[in-house]
Nucleic acid binder design. Structure first.
Lengths: 212, 212
DNA sequence: TGGCCGATACCTCTAAAGTGGTATCGTGAA
DNA sequence: TTCACGATACCACTTTAGAGGTATCGGCCA
């Protein structure tokens, strides 16, 4: 019997997955938490063979929980649960070292297979995200290609956020304690990186990609 | 026993919800489909008391399915399943006439209550979305306040769409066969109606509200 | 029929965005 | 220890957006 901890902020999804497995599946969700910050505490109390973890959560995201676990020296294999919208994070999470990735629209049999593999510390990647993995590996060899969004620095994303709020370059400069010139340079670099012509396209692109 | 049809592109979520209900809950998911286009065909084959429907789906979204049902004269109460990200669509879907709305992070008991109410053709609104509903109703009674979006004419929405694509006033003018002056007047009127300062805020507001 | 409003159009002027450069500094990777 | 890169800063210039007006025309509704 594989004992699994489920970390997901969607109660409905969590309880659904739990009741999906019956004893003869060889898998049991022994605990569900909606707050990733509780993971270290839970792991010190109960023993699990693997963790099923949602990537996008409000309080702390899946990557954050992974980092938290690393910091506390907790070594439990993790299967990340992602939605299509999270695809953009996959590269980030690959570096943090999850054991596998599966899409939330996978079937029960796929999930079962994934849980089994991950609990044995084998890697599992859902077929649909293979392209992302491939892009990532290729991107490492040739960073000039690949994901536009990941080319943005944190500062640049911060600037985009300000622009989206309707702030002009001067207001952004004052808010971030930098010169207006610097803000304009950032804007230019951002637009160049994302391949957009103007502010309107920048914002609509950024919102579509989930940068803001 | 309430017989329900579940429409959701996330297989895992669907199967999870299905196995969450056992016979003594009084609810049974008799069928799951990941493609909303199949709903009319399914309804002609099997009889259900209500439909649980995800809003955001790739092939056809929840609102589209509702419209499709209306067109085919199918009158089955629908409970919409929404995620936080879908909140912006709620106003749009209210007009299409779903019977209730529940968030995907609701608990099993909340879902049970919602399904029971909707199957009896009572309305159910999850507490977290009450504000949205309230805004909507207030907007209807007093159009000068509240609902900013509905003050926009179709032409104005069309202009917003063009701006979001990164087109400047000149390009929009050429595309719509009108003068650049006219486009600028529209832009000004739109910004005034929505109470935004600049293009960036216009686009981010419009995308949040689901205008584009 | 008279008034309201949306779509159209024009003028002028200022502010802001966008484009072309260059350059320094610190940090982290090769 | 170079070398690359992100964050910072500045200059000069063109284009566009934004704000102030005014005005015509056609449809809809009371």
């Amino acid at each position: 019997m594989i004992r699994a901890l489920l970390v997901d902020d969607h109660q409905l999804f969590g309880e659904g997955v739990r009741s999906m497995f019956n004893p003869n599946d060889g898998i049991e969700i022994v605990k569900i938490t909606t707050n990733g910050n509780n993971v270290p505490a839970i792991l010190s109390e109960i023993e699990v063979d693997m963790i099923l973890m949602d990537i996008s959560m409000p309080l702390i995201d899946g990557v954050g929980v992974l980092e938290l676990m690393k910091k506390n020296g907790l070594d439990v294999p993790v299967l990340m649960l992602t939605m299509h919208q999270d695809m953009k994070y996959i590269r980030r999470t690959l570096e943090t070292g999850a054991q596998g990735y599966i899409l939330k629209d996978a079937s029960k049999s796929e999930l079962t297979e994934a849980i089994e593999k991950v609990s044995r510390r084998e890697n599992y990647f859902h077929p649909k995200i293979n392209n992302q993995i491939f892009d990532y590996l290729r991107g490492n060899k040739n960073p000039s290609e690949g994901n536009l969004v990941d080319q943005l620095s944190d500062r640049e994303k911060e600037i985009i956020g300000c622009i989206g709020k309707g702030m002009n370059s001067k207001a952004i400069a004052e808010a971030l304690f930098i010169s207006e010139h610097t803000v304009k340079t950032h804007r230019r670099n951002i637009m160049h990186k994302l391949g957009v012509k103007n502010t309107a396209e920048l914002i609509s692109f950024s919102m579509e990609k989930g940068i803001i």
